[in-house]
């Protein structure tokens, strides 16, 4: 049964990479059910993240946000800060797609704080870029400029010319 769970997860990921998102969702839901059966929180977290990702490409941003929120909750239970940062980043972007910029900013600031704590400059740069866009969407040019400058500084430091 445990191996069956892993197989479902792998099938879900394969379909996802092929762009077959409805099939990916179906397999990841099976994976999630088996993870719950075993009380395997790490696998449950993975299934939620994968389901969130697939729903982004299905255009179901509201559903994606729910899966990412659950993944965030589990990453906190698992005390995995890198994963927590990843979940916050996904939530920030998803709320931007939902045009809820205040919530997007809230999650991007959480992502930024963890990236700073972990010394992840690339993550910090991404967070600044996202905050720059979210503040611009809100018409807050002063804050947007602040994060644009930080983004530029970090991009130069990490050699990201793009």
């Amino acid at each position: 049964r445990a191996a069956q769970g892993r197989a479902y997860g792998n099938l879900g990921n394969s379909h996802y990479l092929l762009g077959n998102f409805p099939k990916a969702v179906a397999f990841h839901k099976q994976r999630l059910a088996i993870a719950k059966e075993f009380g395997d929180k790490a696998a449950e977290k993975r299934a939620h993240s994968n389901l969130g990702n697939a729903h982004i490409f299905l255009g179901r941003f509201d559903v994606a946000a729910e899966y990412f929120r659950k993944a965030l909750q589990l990453s906190r239970q698992l005390k995995d800060q890198a994963v927590e940062a990843q979940c916050c980043y996904s939530l920030g972007n998803t709320y931007t797609l939902l045009q809820d910029y205040e919530k997007a900013i809230d999650y991007h600031l959480k992502h930024l704080a963890i990236a700073q704590e972990l010394g992840d400059r690339v993550g910090e740069g991404r967070a600044c870029w996202s905050l720059e866009d979210a503040y611009m969407s809100l018409g807050n040019r002063e804050q947007a400029l602040y994060f644009a400058e930080k983004h530029l500084e970090i991009s130069q430091e990490v050699g990201d010319q793009d």
Partner: peptide, 26 residues
Amino acid sequence: VQRMHLIQVDSVQRWMEDLKLMTDCE
């Protein structure tokens, strides 16, 4: 409408490009 919106936000577009190849592996 949701799909059109994302085209306007560079940082989100970049995230989605990365996301296409991102799977949380078993």
